[in-house]
Amino acid sequence: MSATDDIYRTSHLKLVPRRHWGRMISAGVVLLLLAALVRAFANGKIEWTYVGDFLFSRTILDGLVNTILMTFAAMALGIVLGVVFAIMRISENPVLSSIATGYVWVFRGAPALLQLLLWFNLALVFPKIGIPGVMEWRTVDVMTPFVAAMLALGIQQGAYTSEVVRGGLLSVDSGQYEAARAIGMGQLLMLRRIVLPQAMRVILPPIGNEVIGMVKTTSLASVIQYAEILHNAQIIYYANTRVLELLLVASFWYLATVSILSVVQMYIERYFARGAKRLKATG
C-alpha cells in the first residue's frame, strides 16, 4: 500500500462534532430574559384567581361566541364578494372590470375602524333604507351593531380577498381553460369545476391568514357596541377594575381560537393540494 492510498482511509478516524458556541450563548440569553418575564408576571400585581374566575364566565363566553360568529359572517361575505369581484375584474366586459377595480380601490383605501363607524352611523344621512314607497325600514333598526360590523368588515375583506382570488385565477394555466372549453364546458361550469379548484391551492394560504386576522379585527367592532369578547371584557373591568386580568382572559381566548383555526387551515390546504405532488408509489 502506498502513502497516497493512506490519505483516503477515514474509517478508523474519530469524528468530533462542531461546537455551536454562538447558538448556545444566544439561547442562554433568551432563556434568561424569558425567565425574567415569567417572574415579573408571577410577582406583578396580577390576581390570577380573577383570571381563572372569569375565563369561563358567562359574559366572556358569550363574547367569544360573538367573536367567532362575526369572524365567519364577515369572512363569508368577504369571500363571496372577493370571488364575484375577482371574476368581474378579469372579465372582458369593461364596465364590470372597472367597477371591480373601483371597489378594491375604495374599500382598501379606508381604515377598518373608519368603515365601521361609517356603516354604524349611516342613519345620520339615510334615515330610511329600502325601495321608497314599497318597502322601507328605519336605518337605525336595520344597522344593528352586528349588521354594521358584518358589512364594514366583510366589504373591506372582500376588497383584499378579490385580489387574492384574482391572483389564484391567473395562476391557472391557459391550457386548463382550453381543455375545459374543449369538453364543452360553459364559463361558469369551467370556473366552478376546473379553474377555482386549482386556484384554491394559491388562494387558500393567504385566505387562511386572513381568517386568522379577522378573528382579531372583530375586536374593533367593540367601538360600535358589538358584544364581542373584548367589548365584554371591558364591560367587566369597568365594573371591577381588574383591567389586566380581563385582558389576559380575552388574550387567552383569542390565542385558543387562532390555534384551532391554524390546525383547520392545515387540513384544508392538504385537501386542495391533492394531485399536486407526485405520491410515493404504493407497491
Binding site: 391550457g175 386548463q176 381543455a179 375545459a180 374543449a182 376546473i194 386549482q198 394531485g275
Partner: peptide, 10 residues
Amino acid sequence: FQRFNLFPHL
C-alpha cells in the same frame, strides 16, 4: 393538446 392539459386535481 400538445401539452396534454389534463386536469391536475382530478
